[in-house]
């Protein structure tokens, strides 16, 4: 078990971090290339970049969704994301691992704050999953990863919480550590291939949507028809 934990904290962790970082950088680069190519094809190339950036930021403000019919989704989602982002990066134990590996670290969250955020993330992940299962409309648009990601994240956070509080941990220390390390690695590994990548693509979302409006629907099909090249490669 110790060998597996060391493997998960060593080579596998490095592999997972590299996949996550290089993978999301690749998405960002491809998005920029795709955007430049798309821009070359549209007629009206004028874009109000400032307004688009402002709009992107505005969409991040959760308060404006509180008056919608699904306000509880907003509350749960915000609660879920705060812990999800802050705890893995600013938990003291993780920072110490970075410091021993890289030689530098950064300030940590106070222990009790990290604990509360972890618990909130675990509970909100479960509630989001329950809400997804409860409503027919949510069920209809859900894919496999939508069902799998919240429990995986909850397991990573729960095992982490139990490791930080050995007195409350009913399971064996090694098994808890194994689960925490390997589920954490798995989440990093799947980052570029699942919707987790939205953390990087967020700045482009409004930009691409704005550009998409400038494309005439079915333009490609019409061009093929005009050229008489239906069914051929274009």
């Amino acid at each position: 078990m110790d060998a597996l934990i060391e493997f998960g904290r060593g080579p596998l962790f490095r592999f997972a971090v590299a996949i996550a970082l290089l993978g999301i950088s690749r998405h960002a680069i491809l998005s920029v290339i795709g955007f430049i190519r798309l821009r070359a094809r549209v007629g009206d190339k004028r874009l109000a970049y400032g307004a688009i950036a402002l709009n992107t930021l505005r969409r991040l403000n959760p308060l404006k969704y509180l008056v919608s019919s699904r306000w509880y989704y907003t509350v749960l989602s915000v609660a879920f994301h705060v812990g999800l982002i802050l705890v893995p990066i600013f938990y003291l134990g993780h920072i110490r691992l970075w410091r021993s590996g890289l030689g530098f670290g950064w300030p940590a969250l106070p222990g009790p704050v990290a604990d509360v955020l972890s618990l909130i993330t675990i509970v909100s992940a479960m509630l989001l999953l329950a809400a997804r299962a409860w409503w027919k409309e949510s069920r209809a648009i859900s894919k496999a990863q939508d069902w799998l990601l919240p429990p995986l994240i909850a397991i990573a956070f729960l095992s982490g919480y139990l490791l930080a509080h050995p007195a409350q941990n009913p399971f064996d220390f090694s098994i808890t550590m194994f689960v925490h390390v390997w589920v954490g690695d798995l989440l990093l590994l799947i980052t570029p291939f699942t919707k987790i990548v939205h953390c990087t693509l967020l700045p482009f979302s409004q930009l691409v949507a704005e550009m998409a409006w400038r494309m005439v629907p079915g333009a490609g099909r019409d061009a093929v028809k005009t050229l008489g090249k239906e069914g051929q490669a274009i």
């Binding site: 080579p11 596998l12 490095r14 592999f15 997972a16 971090v17 590299a18 996949i19 290089l22 993978g23 690749r26 998405h27 680069i29 491809l30 998005s31 290339i33 795709g34 190519r37 798309l38 094809r41 570029p192 291939f193 990548v197």
Partner: peptide, 29 residues
């Protein structure tokens, strides 16, 4: 790759770049 490609040749680059990411990650591991 999970990328929407406006151009088929970017499609090639999307596949190649994922191989570069895998190669880099494996080397680091």
């Amino acid at each position: 790759s999970g990328v929407i490609n406006a151009d088929p040749y970017t499609g090639g680059f999307a596949s190649y770049s994922i191989m570069a990411v895998l190669g880099g990650a494996l080397a680091l591991a």
